[in-house]
Amino acid sequence: MKRALAIMVGAALILLLATLTLVVMPYLQMSAEQIPPDLKPYTEQQQRGRQVYIANGCVYCHSQQPRDPSFAPGDKARGWGRPSVPGDYAYDEPHLLGTMRTGPDLFNIGARQPSIDWQLMHLYNPRAIIKGSIMPSYPFLFRHVEEPVEGDKVVNIPPPYGPETGKIVATEDALALAEYMLALDHTYPAPTLPKKQSNSDEPKENRAP
């Protein structure tokens, strides 16, 4: 029993060491990180949209973390934005960094596609806008009505993607998700980005197309 116990205690101690280096130390360092002054907290609606993003697993195909151009040249050049810093995520709980780019990075989608109509149409059927997209459609975030009533957000879907008759109307969830997309705009300068960065890149953040 003594030897069995020794193995288990040894195993636990090693994990403790790893927890100190990989959990506690980063937490101490990153929670002391400055929050960029231009970063706005999410509104209630955007937060709800973020929840819709989580519920429907957008994170499994989209990242939210452009890499440094000196490391991975494609990211910035595609208009995905400057490299992100820990402070950018101060209001993110849970984080949604993502590990796949089956679809493009969304860290600055709000700057790249600032129209809510574009966002809603794209959610209803991505192929209505982008030929050959493999993103799923989200018809369940919309209602099909014959006659929209006052206050309904009508989404005009180009044929043949829309219904034959009647109109497509966004639900609260769809609107919230679209608002969250628009909130993903981190084009402000990052105060904590290492200095040498700004020398190698263009001096000003250029807004992505």
């Binding site: 980063p26 929670s31 990180e33 995520y89 849970p94 984080h95 960094l97």
Partner: peptide, 9 residues
């Protein structure tokens, strides 16, 4: 663990 430190955890 909020934000980026949540990602490390």
């Amino acid at each position: 663990f909020p934000g980026a430190s949540g990602a490390t955890v």
